[in-house]
Simulated assay, not measured.
Amino acid sequence: MKSILRLCQAVEEQAKEVYEGLAQRAADPDLASMWRELAMEEGRHREHWQMLLRSAERGQVPSLFPNEEEVEAELRSVLTRIAALRSGLDAPGNAAWPFVLGLRVQFQLLQPTLEYLLQWARRLSGEAEPKSGSEQALGRLVAAVRRCGAGPELDLACEMLVALQRQNQQLLLQSHRDALTGVRNRRGFLDAIFPLCHLAQRSGQTVGFLMLDLDDFKRVNDEHGHERGDEVLRAVARILQGNMRQSDVLGRHGGDQFIVFLSPVVAGAVAAVGEKLRLAVEEGTAGECPVTASVGGASGMLGRDVQRDVDKLLARVDACLFIARSTGRNRVVVQE
């Protein structure tokens, strides 16, 4: 991971130098200001990369990619292409040439690894739902291109880049969301909580997990059909989401199981939230197709090996859920 992070930092440093060069060469004060803003945005990203690198040096950043060598190779290719664009700053060209350079840099910065890791870093800094930096930068550049009337070809290039950026965001969202309920899937849940776990570990905060299993859900599908079963799962997801803090994270663990991450928590909080959610499900689905939930939970502090400690907490949650299911169901069992 450390080599990937260093490459990401180098890519954005090169992009910053291109924008600074364009600002220095811009005759129009407004355009010079816009290029400087883009350079400053890349400079602000440096803080995120340095924070991630420090965490990686301490062994606090898990391996986020199954194919790190391929990711490194793609980032090196991006770095080479942006360096080539930097060398073209003084190439002769018309008034549209700076926009061509800027758009080509933005195209390279749409590399998914950069955006993914930046969002990871922002969550580690405490931003619950970080915004896309590439979307904001591209928006400023596109607005400048259209304001200056750089020509139909560049207008088309802008439209294509905006569409590509939105498609990238949509694909990232789809890969992290459960299509049926709209909450995070297992991958999206883990991607969301691990930066928060590292943040809790650094600040010495206690974290908690809850796992909810809908009792005898097979009966719902058998008696009412799978379509009605899907409606129940969507309703349960809405009920859970509506009874959680904004800072907590909800995911569909699979099938009829949901998982909740709570941070920070105090003594007794996990059990109290578990009971609140259990009761909300029971009351919120009362009617033609009622369901109840068995709930297991655990809380604890995280040590230097965050991944290991999270795995241990989840194992305790699973054990508590087993007890709740095997001792009558529709109950909460928590180990704090």
Results as ranks from 00 to 15, higher is better:
4 I>D: 01
5 L>E: 04
6 R>L: 13
12 E>Q: 13
13 E>K: 05
18 V>R: 01
23 A>F: 06
24 Q>H: 07
25 R>F: 06
27 A>C: 07
30 D>F: 15
31 L>P: 00
32 A>M: 02
32 A>H: 04
33 S>N: 14
38 L>C: 08
39 A>D: 08
40 M>A: 15
41 E>P: 01
41 E>W: 09
43 G>W: 00
45 H>K: 04
49 W>I: 02
49 W>M: 07
50 Q>I: 06
57 E>G: 15
58 R>W: 13
62 P>C: 12
68 E>R: 10
76 R>F: 09
77 S>L: 08
78 V>F: 06
78 V>Y: 08
79 L>P: 02
82 I>M: 02
84 A>I: 05
87 S>W: 05
91 A>N: 13
94 N>H: 12
102 G>N: 05
103 L>T: 07
103 L>Y: 09
115 E>D: 10
116 Y>D: 12
119 Q>P: 00
119 Q>M: 09
120 W>Y: 15
121 A>H: 02
123 R>A: 05
124 L>A: 13
124 L>G: 14
125 S>L: 12
125 S>F: 09
127 E>S: 08
127 E>L: 08
127 E>P: 00
128 A>N: 14
129 E>P: 00
132 S>Q: 03
134 S>F: 04
136 Q>D: 13
136 Q>L: 10
137 A>M: 08
139 G>A: 12
145 V>D: 02
145 V>C: 03
150 A>F: 01
150 A>Q: 13
155 D>K: 02
155 D>E: 12
156 L>N: 10
156 L>T: 12
157 A>L: 06
158 C>Y: 01
160 M>A: 15
160 M>T: 07
164 L>I: 07
165 Q>L: 06
170 Q>M: 09
170 Q>P: 00
173 L>Y: 12
177 R>P: 00
178 D>Q: 07
179 A>T: 09
182 G>Q: 08
186 R>I: 06
189 F>G: 01
192 A>T: 11
194 F>S: 06
194 F>P: 02
195 P>Q: 09
196 L>V: 07
198 H>S: 15
198 H>P: 00
200 A>S: 14
206 T>R: 15
209 F>W: 05
211 M>D: 06
215 D>S: 05
217 F>Y: 02
218 K>N: 13
223 E>M: 12
225 G>I: 14
226 H>E: 12
228 R>W: 08
229 G>W: 04
232 V>G: 11
233 L>V: 05
239 I>T: 10
246 Q>M: 12
254 G>A: 10
254 G>H: 14
256 D>C: 08
258 F>S: 09
262 L>Y: 04
263 S>N: 11
268 G>E: 06
270 V>W: 01
272 A>P: 01
277 L>M: 11
286 A>M: 08
288 E>K: 09
288 E>S: 12
288 E>Y: 07
293 A>W: 01
297 G>D: 02
298 A>C: 06
299 S>Q: 03
299 S>P: 01
301 M>C: 14
303 G>D: 12
306 V>C: 13
310 V>N: 05
315 A>N: 08
317 V>P: 06
318 D>E: 13
319 A>W: 02
322 F>V: 07
322 F>M: 07
323 I>G: 03
323 I>W: 06
324 A>Q: 00
332 V>A: 11
